[in-house]
């Protein structure tokens, strides 16, 4: 199975533009399934971006972040070919991570 994380990190002058899309249900815990049973909350709580061992962006998320969450930001100090590590952890303790190259 492919990674749950898609990243585009593009060097644009002196900043690196980063866009990420993650496959995750982001269930709120307030919705019932087709059988009328409450679907328990299941959502990413923290998403971290690291460049050269330094955290360049940290997201704390609640259940109000959309399904298959998307986030975009930019940071200075990156260069083409550098590694950018993305990792998340959800409220059930599941995690995933991916290292992408800045393009």
């Amino acid at each position: 199975m492919a990674s749950s994380i898609r990243v585009r990190a593009i060097q644009n002058g002196d900043v690196t533009d980063v866009q990420t899309l993650i496959q995750h249900p982001m269930d709120t815990g307030l919705i019932k399934d087709a059988k009328g049973e409450l679907i328990p909350a299941h959502f990413i709580q923290q998403l971290t971006f690291e460049h050269n061992g330094k955290t360049v962006f940290l997201a704390d998320w609640g259940t109000a972040v959309s399904k298959d969450p998307y986030v975009k930001f930019a940071f200075k100090g990156g260069a083409k070919g550098d590694d950018l590590k993305v990792s998340w952890v959800d409220n059930k303790g599941a995690t995933d991570s991916l290292t992408a190259k800045i393009q």
């Binding site: 492919a2 898609r6 899309l21 496959q23 298959d68 998307y70 975009k72």
Partner: peptide, 15 residues
């Protein structure tokens, strides 16, 4: 469309 929500389906479809 900057990062479209059908991206995952598209990749799964290709596979």
């Amino acid at each position: 469309e900057q990062f479209p929500p059908y991206e995952f389906a598209l990749e799964a479809g290709k596979e």
